[in-house]
Design a protein around this nucleic acid. Structure first.
Length: 444
RNA sequence: GCGAGUGUCGCCAAGCGGUCAAGGCCCCGGAUUGUGGUUCCGGUAUACGUGGGUUCGAUUCCCAUCACUCGCCCCA
């Protein structure tokens, strides 16, 4: 029982074989590959470019960028020391992207700079449904523009991605965090209001009162909730406390979303757990996820680049949790043709495989070909033809290509349709068109 | 960090104090050494999470511990 296990909160994603399909689709690699491919395609179409930054960064990047008052920085970071350096496994993507933006002079690129990233993030938390210690995020950042319509474009991009992934029934919640001036003013107002109740609030709210009173509004403790439900408190929350300029921008966001037919709910208590947000914040949730129901979260962060030492640069972005996304996604069946070469001479079989999979000249590529995938595997067991055919079936092949001494002599193969059992002969040169013209199987 | 639930072969799953470790799936071999997925036969596995305790006896009862799962907090 002293076998080494994977660390708590991490996941193996397995290939899943034709014979023994993976238990949960979540751990099936093909689902991940499809999600990633779809996302890259969608974001690429929309003019976003991928950026890859390190999986670990200086601890200070996160404590400064994400914010000293956040749970992430206070209790969730994987931090280690090397020499006199303190390093941390990235708990989120934005800080690293902004660091790279500053460090590599992307601030000199034509605005806006539209980036996306995807990869593992690390947070030391108690794992539960929809929460892992190593999890994966896909995120976009648009830097350099303060136009509220950019917020809308970014949200619309997220919605388009969800559509491409066949995810129904998502809820978009948005709120206005105000600009810097408004926030400072409202912060004082909140503190003044809650001061009399301070002793009745939960421990964490007492801390929040000092470091970030906005996050008190998000508290789910029943005691605090009771106070927040009071009419005078509610009216305080409902009021538009941001200054006119900020409200104007927020109204534009709402109007454009409506014009685009993207439904949303205003949630005055949505403040998000990261300190860097200003103005528009939003969260996209699903009710099919259990307790951790946020699929996507984001907002505008007009101060962050400056905070991290860059030139004043307004920006918006979001991140989606890929594990949560994966539980919601409907992956369409892909038609594919899989051939399995049954043979008594491995070199000849490999030659046949090369013929099928080898580089195709462009003029050889037909329209039909692009709509089907063709794969070809060669038997490696060296067993009798019967056993090889058995393997072909177990491996989910649609066709067996039988290549024995006789066939080699005639420069032919037998093509056996493993669904119908039909067998036909075919010249070497005609194999590929023959397979492509066959009706492909649906594979999950 | 705090609650709750679960822990029998790779997977599913019986047994709940007395020949105790079924069964199914998967895997491997054979019937079938140039034609499979059906069928039949056979085979592999250090499987009762770990450590104590109760008992004449513990997979079954108790305690502890660990792991996993779900929830709180918070977030993706």
């Amino acid at each position: 029982m002293d076998n080494i296990q994977r660390p708590k909160g991490t996941q193996d994603i397995l290939p899943g074989s034709a014979g023994a399909p993976a238990h949960g689709s979540l751990s099936h690699i093909s689902l991940w590959q499809w999600i990633e491919a779809t996302a890259r395609q969608q974001l690429g179409f929309a003019g976003y470019q991928e950026i890859r930054t390190p999986v670990f960064e200086s601890t200070e990047l996160f404590s400064r960028g994400v914010g000293e008052s956040t749970d992430i920085v206070n209790k969730e970071m994987y931090t280690f020391e090397k020499g006199d350096r303190s390093l941390t496994l990235r708990p989120e993507g934005t800080a690293g992207v902004v660091r790279a933006y500053i460090e590599n002079g992307l601030s000199r690129w034509p605005k806006p700079v539209k980036l996306y990233y995807a990869g593992p993030m690390f947070r030391y938390e108690r794992p539960q449904a929809g929460r892992q210690r190593q999890f994966h995020q896909l995120g976009v950042e648009v830097l350099g523009l303060d136009n509220p319509q950019v917020d809308v474009e970014v949200i619309a991009t997220a919605m388009r991605l969800f559509t491409a992934l066949n995810i129904p029934h998502l809820t978009l919640q948005i709120n206005n965090m105000g600009d810097e001036q408004s926030r400072a003013a409202f912060r004082q107002k909140l503190q003044a209001f809650f001061k009399p109740y301070l002793s009745q609030l939960c421990e964490s709210c007492q801390v929040r009162f000092e470091v970030n009173p906005f996050r008190m509004l998000d508290c789910k403790e029943s005691g605090c909730n009771h106070i927040y439900q009071q009419p005078d408190c509610q009216s305080l929350l409902q009021e538009e406390w941001a200054n006119e300029e900020s409200q104007q921008a927020f109204r534009q966001v709402c109007e454009s979303l409506t014009a685009l037919g993207i439904p949303f709910e205003r949630n005055h208590r949505l403040v998000r757990g990261l300190d860097y947000y200003t103005q528009t914040v939003f969260e996209i949730t699903s009710n099919h996820l259990g307790a951790q129901n946020a699929v996507c979260g984001g907002g505008r962060y007009n101060q962050l680049v400056e905070t991290l030492g860059g030139p004043p640069t307004p920006a918006v972005g979001w991140a989606v949790g890929l594990e949560r996304l994966a539980t919601l996604v409907q992956k369409p069946a892909v038609s594919q043709i899989k051939a399995y070469v049954v043979h008594d001479d491995l070199p000849s079989a490999i030659a046949l495989q090369q013929r099928l999979l080898g580089e195709t000249s462009h003029d050889e590529t037909s329209h039909e070909e692009s709509s089907h995938e063709i794969s070809c595997e060669v038997d490696l067991s060296g067993k009798g033809f019967g056993k090889q055919l058995e393997q072909a079936a177990k491996r989910g092949a649609t066709f067996a290509l039988i290549l024995g001494a006789q066939e080699r002599e005639n420069k032919q193969v037998q093509i056996k349709n493993l669904t119908t059992g039909e067998v036909s002969s075919c010249d070497f040169a005609a194999i590929k068109p023959m397979l492509l013209s066959a009706k492909p199987q649906s594979a999950p």
